[in-house]
Structure formats: C-alpha cells, structure tokens
Simulated assay, not measured.
Amino acid sequence: MDLGILDTVSLAATLVFALPVALLGVERLLAGQTLVGGGFLAVGVLMVVLQEWLTTPTDVPAEAAQRVVGRVAESDDEE
C-alpha cells in the first residue's frame, strides 16, 4: 500500500477515533459480553476499512492534486 503524506495523516486521524472504539470492544469481550464487544470491535475495524475504500467528497480535490503533481513533477525514470 503506497500512502502519500495526506493519506497517512488521514489514516492517523481515523485511527484516533477507531482505536478507542476497538479497545472498548476488546475490553467488553474479555469481560464476557461477546455481543457488545464484538459489535464495538466490528465498528472500530469498519471505521478504518471504510475510510480507506470509500471515496468521499473531500478525497476528490486531493486525488486531483496528486494527478497534477504527478504530471508536473516527473521522476528520473520517466525521462
């Protein structure tokens, strides 16, 4: 998976919100509440997975900027 700077920052921001939810799920699983714990764990995982797979309206300008930079700044291999 090749992540740029913006992708890495976006993933870190998502993990800030997803990790506490997933840890709560693990805690509930260890406490014996399998339904609640599994639900929280699934929500935490889905937060990260959906953020990586879905394209949101804020992703469109970032993708356009990456395409422009890719065309303007050619690497040594392309020359």
Rank of each mutant, 00 (worst) to 15 (best):
L3F: 14
L3G: 00
L3W: 09
G4I: 01
G4S: 14
I5Y: 09
L6K: 15
D7T: 05
T8P: 00
S10Q: 03
A12K: 04
A13Y: 05
T14C: 12
T14A: 13
T14V: 15
T14Y: 04
L15H: 01
L15T: 01
V16P: 02
A18Y: 05
A18P: 02
L19F: 14
P20S: 07
A22F: 13
A22E: 08
L23K: 09
L23E: 03
L24P: 00
G25V: 05
G25E: 03
V26R: 00
V26Y: 04
E27R: 07
E27C: 03
L30T: 11
A31Q: 12
A31G: 09
A31R: 11
G32N: 08
G32L: 06
G32S: 07
T34I: 13
L35A: 14
L35W: 12
L35P: 00
V36G: 03
V36I: 14
G37K: 01
G38I: 06
G38H: 11
F40V: 05
A42L: 15
V43P: 00
V43F: 10
V43H: 00
L46H: 01
V49I: 14
L54A: 10
L54W: 04
T55V: 15
P57R: 04
T58P: 00
V60D: 02
P61S: 07
R67Q: 12
R67A: 12
V68D: 00
V68C: 01
V69W: 11
G70Q: 10
G70Y: 03
R71L: 15
V72I: 15
V72H: 00
A73E: 09
A73L: 15
E74H: 13
S75M: 09
S75A: 12
D76T: 10
E78S: 13
E78K: 08
E79S: 05
E79T: 06
E79N: 05
E79A: 11
